[in-house]
Design a protein around this nucleic acid. Structure first.
Length: 384
DNA sequence: CAGACGTGGCT
DNA sequence: TAGCCAAGTCT
């Protein structure tokens, strides 16, 4: 027909974008952050929780977190420790520390109101390229693409890109494709729809192209290689460490230390201990590590449990020993601070999951370690 | 820019 | 079992 007439119309969204929005309307999952009230704060919290985290996992934490901290003011008024306690088990604890710090900034600098633009949001700690765009578009309707792992994968297939989406140039290209579309759709739902499509249909492995609203426009599908894209870099092998930790008893209390905030698991508490060095037994290691870390002398009384745990870039086998304080005053040589606490109060402190398992084993064992009670009678000690 | 940074689920 | 993966950010 007459192309000139078509061009004279106001720009409209491509057909595939409308198909996507229609699909999202019927197929989206009912997550708590999609229910009312949809405040910017709730959107922000959900986006941070969803970083590198399954939506089902984030959902359970989301409800509890919002019950504890219903708005920016409540979060800003809380202590970092309270926030970490609620975040415990969700991982990537820098997210919680940054979220808390950002809430305080919002109260101090923005009168308790979240900034409304991607550009301003980007200045807050914990809001990177993705989250700033996500909050700006979902909460405030700014027409900017929110490009998370789902969107990058969907678009790498949609456009049949042969280069890794980790390359900055590839991301910029995808942005250049999406940016004009965003101006002709409702930005929030469109961004959410693209992510939901990646989560439900255009999955990393075994994409369900038969159910995809974009299949007629998808280049990878047309070429029969949706499952082969996007190209992935090879994974590195991760090391495995043996770690020994001590539950050190003194006058009915046990010793814990808080990890420095700039380290892994920063701000969380843990039992003292450390890596078992080559040629060293776990018992020798725990005595040495506790001496180095806290300055006290301990004697190993019993083995409590062994916990295997996989972190992102290494694995550990943790062996926990019950120990008796022998001499010295505990000081924080490597920790942020150390504290003797009643074992019943361990529930009040944020601990990493591996340490929480040790606490669980301690509770199952029952009883208390009386001072001076318990000697190293276990005949299997030599095997440790 | 590559590596650090958690955890649980699935294969 | 061990690896891969899940709505990234920071340095």
């Amino acid at each position: 027909m007459d192309a000139a007439i078509e061009q004279s119309n106001a720009p409209s969204a491509p057909v595939w974008a409308e198909e996507l929005l229609g699909w999202f309307q019927t197929e989206q999952r009912p997550f708590p952050w999609r229910r009312r009230p949809q405040t910017p704060f709730r959107t922000w919290v959900s986006e941070v929780m969803l970083q590198q985290t399954r939506a089902e996992t984030a959902a359970t934490y989301f409800e509890r977190f919002l019950a504890c901290f219903p708005d920016v003011s409540a979060l800003a008024a809380a202590s970092q420790e309270e926030v970490l306690r609620v975040w415990e088990g969700l991982g990537y604890y820098a997210r919680a520390r940054n979220l808390h710090a950002a809430a305080r900034l919002v109260v101090e600098r923005y009168g308790g109101r979240l900034p409304r633009t991607e550009c301003e949001l980007r200045k807050l700690p914990g809001l990177g390229p993705y989250t700033a765009a996500a909050v700006a578009s979902l909460a405030f309707g700014e027409p900017v693409p929110a490009m998370d792992g789902n969107v990058l994968r969907v678009m790498a297939r949609f456009l049949a890109l042969d280069h890794s989406v980790r390359e900055a140039g590839v991301r910029e290209y995808i942005r250049s494709v999406l940016a004009p579309v965003l101006r002709n759709v409702t930005p929030g739902p469109f961004n959410e729809a693209l992510m939901e499509l990646g989560a439900l249909v255009c999955t990393p492995r075994g994409p369900r192209c038969g159910d995809c609203p974009l299949r007629t426009a998808c280049r990878a599908h047309a070429e029969g290689r949706a499952a082969e894209l996007p190209v992935r870099p090879p994974r590195r092998r991760i090391p495995h460490y043996a770690v020994a930790v001590g539950i050190v008893w003194k006058e009915g209390k046990v010793l814990i230390g808080r990890r420095r905030t700039d380290r892994m698991l920063g701000g969380l508490w843990e039992f003292p201990g450390g890596k078992v060095e080559p040629g060293e037994s776990p018992v020798e290691a725990v005595v040495r590590e506790i001496r180095e870390e806290t300055g006290i002398e301990v004697a190993v009384v019993d083995r409590l449990c062994t916990v295997k745990h996989a972190y992102t870039h290494f694995r550990v086998t943790l062996t926990a020993f019950e120990c008796r304080w022998e001499a010295g005053q505990a000081v924080a040589n490597s920790a942020d601070c150390v504290r003797w606490v009643n074992p019943d109060d361990l529930a009040d402190y944020p601990f990493p999951v591996a340490n929480r398992r040790i606490i669980h084993a301690l509770a199952l064992r029952g009883g208390r370690q009386a001072d001076g009670a318990g000697t190293c009678q276990n005949s299997s000690m030599g095997a440790w």
